[in-house]
């Protein structure tokens, strides 16, 4: 039990060290940049979606309020 945990820890340590070394090679580095850039794009479009949704929800609310106001006048 303890041994397996120790192994995982050692594995993580190794992966980290190798990872840093690998980052210094050009192709890996370029791939990492691309990955982070994709992440940032995903984040930005998520933010856009949130704001678009907000604008549309507010449109719907305003329209609903207007519909109610008009009905009040009719009756």
């Amino acid at each position: 039990m303890l041994d397996s945990k120790l192994l995982i820890f050692a594995g993580g340590f190794l992966a980290g060290t190798v990872g840093v070394k690998a980052l210094q090679t050009e192709p890996v580095r370029r791939a990492a940049v691309q990955a982070v850039a994709a992440g940032m794009r995903a984040k930005a479009s998520y933010d856009d979606i949130v704001e678009q949704a907000r604008a549309e929800v507010e449109d719907v609310v305003a329209e609903a309020a207007y519909v109610n106001a008009v009905e009040d006048v009719d009756y």
């Binding site: 933010d47 856009d48 704001e51 678009q52 907000r54 604008a55 507010e58």
Partner: peptide, 11 residues
């Protein structure tokens, strides 16, 4: 007036 900067919209 309300500005939505990301989607370039204004209410």
């Amino acid at each position: 007036a309300r500005v939505y900067p990301r989607i370039g919209s204004v209410t």
